[in-house]
Simulated scan of single mutants.
Amino acid sequence: MECAPLDGAAWRKSSHSGSTGGDCLEVTELPGPHIAIRDSKRPAGPHLTVSAAAFTALVSTL
């Protein structure tokens, strides 16, 4: 699997993230279909990429 460039990715903050700082996740849709996940406090930091099906299973489980 090749890594998709994330330079122009349209990151969205999780609807469960508050506005006070704390623990915030952002997600963006990638080709494939895949989802990239990152810490909103570290936008230049690492990200996790999973399949859309795995992301849906994760959210359903949580």
Rank of each mutant, 00 (worst) to 15 (best):
P5I: 00
P5T: 08
D39K: 05
S51A: 09
R38G: 04
G45S: 06
M1T: 08
T61P: 02
A9N: 07
H16C: 09
S60K: 11
D39Q: 05
L58A: 15
P5G: 09
A9S: 13
T28Y: 02
A52H: 15
P46L: 13
A9L: 15
S51D: 13
M1S: 09
R42M: 09
E29D: 15
F55N: 02
S14I: 03
M1V: 09
V59T: 14
I37R: 10
P46G: 11
I37W: 13
R38K: 09
T61A: 13
G22E: 13
G32H: 02
H47L: 05
P43T: 11
S40Q: 03
P46W: 14
T56L: 12
S60L: 12
S51V: 06
R38E: 06
P31A: 13
L30A: 04
R12M: 09
E2M: 08
T61I: 06
A9V: 11
S17M: 00
S15T: 13
P5H: 06
G8H: 13
R12G: 02
A57C: 06
L30P: 03
T61W: 09
A54L: 09
P46M: 08
W11P: 07
L48N: 02
S15H: 00
A54V: 06
V50M: 09
G8V: 05
S51Q: 11
D7S: 08
S19E: 10
G18K: 00
T56Y: 05
A54I: 07
E26N: 01
A57V: 10
L58D: 12
T20I: 07
A54D: 14
K41N: 11
K13V: 14
L30M: 11
A53P: 01
R38D: 08
K13L: 12
S17E: 00
K13S: 12
D39E: 14
A4K: 00
A4N: 05
T56D: 15
L58E: 07
V27C: 04
P46E: 14
A10S: 11
I37Y: 12
V50R: 03
V27R: 02
G18R: 01
D23R: 10
S51E: 12
F55E: 01
